[in-house]
Amino acid sequence: MTDTNTFDGQRWHDMGGTAAGPVPTDQHDFSLWEKRVDALMIVASGKGHFTVDGLRRVLEDMGEEAFETMTYYERWIASVNQNLIEAGVYTTSELAQRMTQVAARGATYGEAASE
């Protein structure tokens, strides 16, 4: 099975039929911050600010390195944020200032999220 069935123009996320190793068996329980990212996606898309297709488009454009180095919900919050900025819900400047404020609240997620 040396035929890897890849094509010029095939994108990294379009994985069907490409060679890969054994299916991993590791499992983790979702943490609160991951569940919040999931909920933000469902709520914001449910209100029409963007679509699941917009979520996927940004995840794909983030590229393979992001897939290999970031966790699933890290990629999701990056994509949710990108879509919300594109939709004009808030500006990059507003996000930047808020992230700086959040970082100043404490060294852990629990401290920074408790405002």
């Binding site: 609160l32 911050w33 996000l95 920074a112």
Partner: peptide, 22 residues
């Protein structure tokens, strides 16, 4: 997973910021 007690990551900062802005 006891993420509340782990060092705050960049992406967690972003989640908090996005949620508060929304």
């Amino acid at each position: 997973r006891p993420d509340d007690d782990h060092p705050l990551t960049y992406w967690q900062q972003m989640e908090i910021a996005v949620r508060e802005l929304l």
